[in-house]
Design a protein around this nucleic acid. Sequence first.
DNA 1: CTCCAAGTTAAACAACTGTTTCAAACATTA
DNA 2: TAATGTTTGAAACAGTTGTTTAACTTGGAG
Lengths: 216, 216
Amino acid sequence: MAQSDTVVRILDTAEALFAEKGFAETSLRAITSRAKVNLAAVNYHFGSKKALIQAVFARYLDPFCEEFNQELAILEKKSEVSLEELLEVLARCTISVPATKGSLSVFMRLLGLAYTQAQGHMRRYLQEHYGQTFLRFTNLLKLSSADLPDAERFWRIHFMLGAVVFTMSSLDALRDIALSDYDEKTRIADLVARLLPVVTAAMQAPVPEQPELVKQ
Amino acid sequence: MAQSDTVVRILDTAEALFAEKGFAETSLRAITSRAKVNLAAVNYHFGSKKALIQAVFARYLDPFCEEFNQELAILEKKSEVSLEELLEVLARCTISVPATKGSLSVFMRLLGLAYTQAQGHMRRYLQEHYGQTFLRFTNLLKLSSADLPDAERFWRIHFMLGAVVFTMSSLDALRDIALSDYDEKTRIADLVARLLPVVTAAMQAPVPEQPELVKQ
DNA sequence: CTCCAAGTTAAACAACTGTTTCAAACATTA
DNA sequence: TAATGTTTGAAACAGTTGTTTAACTTGGAG
C-alpha cells in the first residue's frame, strides 16, 4: 500500500514549498516532481490544489484544536481565569502540537500567508472549521480582561495575532540576525518566553480616549 | 503627451488590484484592461512586472521617507527622546503622507503583502532603498528605551512591526467585522490612536528572566 | 512641411498553469 | 487463480501568464 506514502509525501513537500514561496507561486509540478510522485496524484488524492492547501492546514490545526479545546474546557470550569494563565495555555498548546515535526515556524509562516495572501477561500475555510474554537478562546479572554471595551479588545487581539504570526513567519531570517548581531541562539521556547510579557502588557495597556465617531 | 497619463493610470490601477488580490494573482492583462491601456504599456514604461510592483511602492515610500527623515533629523539633535515622542512622529508621518490620495489603508495592505507574500525581491528592494531610514529610526528607538537589552529590543521591534503590518494588511476585513459587531466605523487615524498605547506598553513590558542559552 | 523620436497598438511568442484522460500496474478479496 | 477495486503513469488538454515584435500613430523641433 503505497497510498499513504504518496499522500504524506505530497503533504510534506507542499507544506515546505508553500511556506517557502507562497501558494500561488508554487505549482503542482514543483510539488510532485520534488516529492517524486506523479503529477496527477494531487488531483487524485485531494481533488484540487485548493483542497491540498486546506489539507496542509488541517494536518496542523486538527490536532492543535483537539488539545486546545480540552485545555479550554478545563479553564471554562474555573470561576475566573487570569490573562497570564490563558495565554500560557495557548502558548503551551501551540508549542506542543507540532513537536513531532519540529516545524512550528513553517506552520506559522503558512498561517501568515493564509491571512494576508488574498486567498479568500482560506480565510473562509479557517473560519468555518476552527472559528468555534477561536470563539471559545475569545470568550475566555473577555473574562480575563473584563475592564477592556469590546471593540478595544477586538483590535488588540488582532494586533497581537499579527505580532505572533509575523514574527514566527519570518523566524528564520530574524533568528539569523539575532545570532549574528546579539550572539543569541533563539529557540522557539525562548521566543514564546519573550512574547508572553509583551502580549500581556499590550492587552493591559491604558485605553485611549474614545475616538469621536464621525460619519465616514 | 499621453505618456504621463498612461503611467499614472497604470500605477493607480495596479495599486488597487495588487491590494485587492495580491501580486501573483494580479495579471498584467487585468491591470491594463481596467486601466484602459495597451498590454505592452507596462513593459514599455516600467520594463517588467517586478519593476511595476516596485514603482507602486516607491510612489508612497519616497515622499514618506523624505518627510520622516526630516523629522528624524530634528529628534536627533535633541539630547533625549521619549518613546511616546518618537512613536508619535512615526505615526504622524505615516498618516500625513498619502493624505492627498486618502488611501493609506491600500498602501498598508501592500506593505503587509510585500512582507508576507514570499516575494523575495520586494524585501530586498525595501531593504536596499529604505533600510537606512529604518536604521536611523532604530537608533533613536535605542536612545528612548535605553534600559532594554539590545536583543530584547530587536525582538520587540519585530513584534510591533508584525502587529502593525498584519492588522493593516487585513484592514478591510477587520473593519467590516468591527462595524458589524461593535458599530464602529474605524478610520485609519482611530486605528493609529489605538495602536500607540499598545505599542508603547509592549515596548515597556517587563523583561523576562534571561533564557538560559543552551548550545543548539 | 519634413522628419524623427516617443508612444501606442494588435498580434504572436514560448513557457507555464491546473486538470483530465485512459491504459497499465498493483493489491485485495472471493 | 481469477476478478475486483485502487493507485500510478505518461500524455494531452485548454487556458493563462509575462514578454517581445513590428507596424502604426502622433506631437513637436528644425
